[in-house]
Design a binder for these strands. Structure first.
Length: 294
DNA sequence: CGCTATGCCTGAAAGC
DNA sequence: TGCTTTCAGGCATAGC
């Protein structure tokens, strides 16, 4: 999946086809993804208009005109494709069966009044879809206890230090915790730590002073997180203009990774050439430079 | 065959 | 005993 920048890119890609449009028809091809679809999911969506498409952490939220919110999460392998609907095909003489364009693992189809057909594909099925009343959204199972938006005003050195104070857990794991910051994932955590010059092995508590206030390291890490996410969104946005679909792939920013998936390659910082190292923390790969990340 | 993969929930284990 | 924190396992599929 998609971490925050990819999800934001997908949201922007879906916007023209979804925002302001109605669901003419919705089809689910199986009873569940990571969790079951809510009862009568397709029927409850039919005829509803999407007032706005927003994002919270790694979730996409469609505000509906009946007071409910459509919740979309891409898990590890979820993606959307946007196709022109049958009504807008170039050859009106030939009947175009919409399913002919479908692939395996296309689990959900949305036919929109915008004339677009939106297919949700998810081989591993770690994604989910849900419908929740707007009034209950903050307390629902997906969002209760969720941390701050890393690109929002609440993500400050003071906040980070307060949440990390007293926690012996490694920085890497602390940053991945969606209850602290919503949206960072395995790739961008490694990238942000490299930018901040901080070791993923350092304890989270070392970013707080004894009185719980932020250290200079906390300020540097907040700035690094913001910068890497903003740059990745900008890169995703630039690739999106050339494609009508939103596949949630890593896009152009991949070429800018400083450490992720670069084990053995030389760190690009000016110091005595040092190879980027891969270690496993909490069962997942972490990439870092042992020379410049302390 | 074994290993890896952008997420995250659950339950066990460990620590205080 | 209990609360909190940490960690491995599992979900399911594809690619190397």
């Amino acid at each position: 999946m998609p971490e925050l920048p990819e999800v934001e890119t997908v949201r922007r890609g879906l916007q023209p086809a979804m925002e302001g449009a109605r669901f003419d028809r919705v089809e689910t091809r199986r009873a569940d993804l990571r969790v079951p679809f809510p009862r009568n999911f397709a029927a409850r969506l039919a005829g509803r208009r999407v007032k706005a498409l927003r994002r919270r952490g790694k979730f996409i939220l469609g505000e509906l005109d009946d007071g409910n919110v459509l919740i979309l999460h891409l898990g590890m392998s979820g993606s959307f494709r946007i196709l022109d609907g049958a009504g807008s095909q170039a050859s009106p003489g030939a009947f175009h069966h919409p399913r002919s364009a479908e692939r395996s693992h296309d689990h959900v189809a949305f036919e929109m009044s915008s004339g677009k057909r939106i297919l949700y594909n998810d081989p591993r099925r770690f994604g989910l879809m849900d419908l929740v009343p707007a009034a209950e959204i903050d307390g629902c199972r997906h969002f209760a206890g969720m941390g701050v938006e890393p690109l929002g005003a609440d993500f400050t050195p003071h906040y980070l230090a307060a949440r990390f104070a007293g926690r012996a857990t490694p920085l890497k794991a602390a940053l991945l915790d969606q209850h602290v910051i919503a949206g960072l994932g395995n790739i961008y955590v490694s990238e942000a730590l490299w930018r901040a010059g901080l070791s993923p092995l350092r304890s989270a508590a070392t970013l707080a002073r004894k009185d719980g206030g932020p250290t200079a390291r906390a300020a540097g890490l907040v700035a690094a997180c913001r910068a890497v996410l903003e740059e990745a969104i900008a890169a995703g946005g630039s690739t999106l203009r050339n494609h009508t679909l939103t596949d949630g792939s890593l896009g152009a920013f991949q070429a800018n990774f400083a450490v992720y998936d670069r084990e053995g390659q030389a760190c690009s910082r000016p110091h005595r050439p040092t190879a980027i190292r891969r270690i496993v923390q909490g069962g997942r790969s972490t990439f870092y430079c042992p020379a410049c990340q302390r």
